[in-house]
């Protein structure tokens, strides 16, 4: 699905001579849900900027579905940390933005989106403005918008970090449901170990700058899973290891 081959990158406006990402290889297979785990400021978001095409790598190539594109803009679905809904658009019009950009007729787009809004538990709010919605609902609209971009690869950048603990849990369960149903490939940035364990097939750990290789951890859990599965002794051990590793990264 997605391959990084020997990627190096450094922000142009930065005086630092050491690159942020240095000859990085990475592989994402179709249908996977992968978490990228790391402390803040470790370059996780930069990885996403490269995959979405907002930044170009200085060296190496990114392959999407086995092809190298001149620009990846418009080929990958991206869900930002803040919901970034347009306050002047209703829920419906926010969600159908990607369809609108593709030039699909408004009538047609509306019909499609209205159906999905119901599925996403947002019926009754179609014509409300985002300011009327709770944080969880706004993230659901934002996720729907990401799905409607039509891309098979979705990048989720700490989408639930601003939500309270209870809402976050139900959103995580909801995300798993949607992922299984829609057969998308998801890359999920987080700094929350529990979240990473609960959601993903594999966890990639960002290990300090420059990002050179990502440590990989398989999550030994089947699907469907519940939050109770995280209480399994093996998982508690794994969680401790992960936390220990991350702490070392921060103190280094």
């Amino acid at each position: 699905m997605l391959q990084f081959r020997n990627i190096s990158f450094q922000y142009k406006h930065n005086d630092r001579t050491s690159p942020l990402i240095k000859s990085l290889d990475m592989n994402v297979h179709k249908g996977e849900l992968i978490s990228i785990l790391g402390p803040s400021g470790s370059g996780k978001s930069t990885l996403f900027r490269l995959i979405t095409g907002l930044e170009q790598p200085d060296a190496g190539e990114i392959r999407l579905d086995g092809r190298v594109f001149k620009s990846l803009l418009g080929r990958v679905g991206y869900m930002p940390q803040q919901d970034l809904l347009m306050p002047w658009r209703t829920v419906l019009d926010n969600a159908l933005l990607p369809l609108e950009l593709k030039g699909i007729k408004k009538e047609e787009a509306r019909k499609e989106v209205l159906k999905l809004l119901e599925e996403f538990g947002l019926s009754g709010f179609e014509y409300h403005f985002p300011s009327d919605l709770s944080g969880g609902m706004r993230q659901r609209v934002s996720f729907l918008r990401t799905i409607l971009s039509g891309a098979d690869l979705l990048l989720l950048d700490e989408p639930f970090s601003a939500l309270d603990a209870i809402t976050r849990l139900s959103m995580q369960e909801w995300l798993l449901l949607q992922w299984e149903k829609r057969k998308k490939t998801i890359l999920f940035i987080t700094h929350d170990v529990n979240e990473a364990l609960f959601l993903s097939d594999r966890i990639l750990i960002v290990n300090g700058t420059p990002v050179h290789n990502l440590e990989e951890v398989q999550v030994p859990l089947g699907r469907p899973r519940t939050i109770q599965d995280l209480n399994h002794p093996a998982l508690i051990q794994l969680k401790d290891d992960l936390l220990h590793q991350l702490r070392m990264k921060v103190s280094r």
């Binding site: 979405t52 095409g53 907002l54 803009l73 418009g74 080929r75 990958v76 679905g77 991206y78 930002p80 803040q82 970034l84 347009m86 933005l97 990607p98 950009l101 593709k102 971009s149």
Partner: peptide
């Protein structure tokens, strides 16, 4: 205009 929204629109191919 929000820079973040601009980038989001770019990722949608705007």
């Amino acid at each position: 205009s929000s820079k973040e929204l601009k980038e989001l629109l770019l990722t949608m191919g705007a």
